[in-house]
């Protein structure tokens, strides 16, 4: 396991942090600075918001650099239904402000040479043109100051 990986718990759930997966999409701290504050150590404060709110924001992470699980696995079954807000059967393409194009759900992605790229779950595609991992986002837009609006 990579040494930088961390976990944080409030007794009910545990949030996992995988820094190598982070593309600095910034959803976590823009949505919930009380819990996810990069300027603080430790940067995750599990007492800053309700479990439900923390889960909502962890789920916004496009690369699963943030993930979570219930400490008591049985509690998850009752909760997960309440939390499904959007219709998950419909694929979603989302424009992130000053950031990538986020694809959630099923999409057939075909690259510039006509080859299909295997894709499951969530993917971020570069919109700034500066990524070193095209067509995917690698977080470079944060360094170049890319503005989309």
């Amino acid at each position: 396991m990579y040494q930088g990986n961390k976990k944080y718990t409030n007794g009910e759930i545990t949030v996992f942090w995988y820094p190598k997966k982070c593309i600095h999409a910034t959803h976590c701290y823009r949505e919930l600075i009380e819990v996810f504050n990069p300027g603080r150590r430790p940067w995750v404060n599990m007492n800053g918001a309700s479990t439900r709110e923390i889960i909502r924001v962890v789920k916004l992470c496009p690369t699963k650099a943030l993930d979570y699980e219930y400490n008591n696995k049985d509690a998850q079954k009752g909760q997960s239904r309440d939390l499904s807000v959007a219709d998950k059967t419909v694929s979603e393409a989302r424009i992130m402000k000053d950031g990538p194009l986020l694809l959630k759900g099923d999409f057939r992605i075909i690259d510039h040479e006509g080859k299909e790229i295997r894709h499951t779950g969530t993917t971020s595609l570069c919109r700034c043109g500066a990524s070193k991992d095209l067509p995917f986002c690698d977080g470079t837009h944060n360094k170049t100051g890319y503005k989309s609006d």
């Binding site: 393409a93 194009l101 694809l103 999409f107 057939r108 595609l125």
Partner: peptide, 15 residues
């Protein structure tokens, strides 16, 4: 049908 995403050569991303 699964929606399609095409990375167009030297061009935009078609959805």
């Amino acid at each position: 049908k699964i929606p399609e995403v095409r990375i167009l050569k030297d061009g935009p991303i078609m959805l």
